[in-house]
């Protein structure tokens, strides 16, 4: 059974594209056949985050307008078995794709892939409507900041209005030190405010910038904390209920507490 998952957020810059890349790679590492679609027309980025920018021939607009078959447009990532990308068009208008075309494309792709991941553009205009059109499930990426959480709440409302009730928060860029001293909303705070289920958390991690520089998603780096967060999320998406990662575990006090067997 295949699943269409849209990765969205409302606010820009919270990590949608990085999240799509990491979840895509993570799922392929679990043996799934995955295709990622970049729907951010005019501001294409998923290709460069994945390190596939030199291999683009066709794009999403070519696929939905029938210039070529999805299979022909899909770039195969040679590093990971079963991972494909349909890049966004860079030169065309953002209204070059319609809701009906996206629905049709998603349904067509279901035949060939286990997971279809849609990278949604920021905002709530046409690009957003296209991105969610064919989705079964939505992951709402937010950071523990008032602006991002507020926009995430707007997105929850819009998803529900469009009949996508299977939606989860993904809280990105958590800084355990700041949460501990009360200067950052905690995971519980964000979930309480948004009142939706949580798919996972990703700690703030400099490795993300390094891995994006190289075009190698952090999820394949066993030492990366963010990579661990993404690995857990991919496990949950495949039905394996792994516990939330312990953000205190790597801090000095966390280790001391563990030493004394203190429950956290």
């Amino acid at each position: 059974m295949s699943e269409v998952i849209v990765i969205t957020s409302g606010k820009g810059g919270v990590g949608k594209t990085t999240t799509t890349a990491n979840i895509g790679v993570g799922l392929s590492k679990l043996g799934k056949k995955v295709i990622m679609i970049d729907t951010d027309i005019g501001l294409r980025n998923l290709d460069v985050v994945l390190g596939l920018e030199n291999r683009i021939v066709y794009d999403l607009v070519d696929v939905v307008t029938g210039v070529c078959e999805p299979k022909k447009a899909a770039i195969k990532d040679k590093r990971f078995n079963g991972l494909f990308l349909i890049p966004a068009a860079q030169t065309k208008d953002k209204d070059a794709v319609s809701v009906e075309q996206m629905k049709e494309l998603c349904d067509k792709l279901r035949e060939d892939y286990d997971f279809i991941l849609i990278d949604c553009p920021a905002g709530i205009e046409q690009g957003f409507k296209n991105a969610i059109a064919g989705a079964d499930k939505a992951l709402i990426v937010t950071t523990p900041e008032v602006s991002a959480v507020r926009d995430a709440d707007r997105i929850v409302g819009l998803l529900e209005a469009n009949g996508i009730d299977d939606h989860y928060a993904l809280i990105n860029r958590i800084r355990p030190d700041m949460v501990k001293r009360g200067d950052m909303l905690s995971v519980d705070d964000v979930i309480e405010v948004l009142n939706i289920d949580l798919i996972g958390i990703v700690p703030d991690d400099q490795d993300i910038i390094v891995s994006t520089n190289k075009g190698e998603p952090a999820v394949i780096n066993p030492k990366s904390l963010a990579g661990q967060g993404y690995r857990n999320i991919t496990e949950r998406l495949t039905g394996n209920n792994v516990p939330l990662m312990d953000l205190d575990g790597n801090s000095f006090f966390g280790r001391i507490k563990k030493l004394f067997g203190k429950k956290q």
Binding site: R150, M184, S186
Partner: peptide
């Protein structure tokens, strides 16, 4: 005072109006 408490209170209020 912890700044996250201010963030949470302000968020709750603004979301009520948004919703």
């Amino acid at each position: 005072p912890r700044s996250k408490d201010a963030a949470k209170d302000r968020l709750k209020l603004v979301l009520v109006h948004d919703r």
